[in-house]
């Protein structure tokens, strides 16, 4: 992981990043792929739930909430 790359979990609310790779496997991977989480997709952290997890992300026009278990598997590169 190069210096500028980090886990999606660490993307602050209101910031945007670009997907570098998706680390999950199996059905979880397919599910994330289907939501459009492929390399070079732009993701914006929109809001945290009151308990801090899950976090909602804007992904290709839709707002999708992901648990930290999922977002930890996604490596991104900051755009802001």
């Amino acid at each position: 992981m190069s210096a500028a790359e980090f886990e999606l979990t660490r993307l602050p609310v209101g910031k945007r990043a670009e997907v570098v790779r998706v680390g999950s496997v199996g059905s979880m991977r397919n599910r994330l792929l289907d939501l459009g989480l492929v390399p070079s997709t732009v993701v914006e952290a929109v809001r945290k739930s009151p308990a801090g997890d899950p976090v909602a992300y804007k992904i290709r026009g839709a707002v999708i909430a992901l648990r930290s278990e999922e977002s930890r598997q996604i490596t991104v590169r900051s755009l802001d």
């Binding site: 059905s27 397919n30 599910r31 792929l33 289907d34 939501l35």
Partner: peptide
């Protein structure tokens, strides 16, 4: 007309 389930894709599980 057959109303299919709403899906994001036809690939997943």
């Amino acid at each position: 007309l057959v109303d299919l389930p709403g899906t994001y894709s036809l690939l997943a599980n």
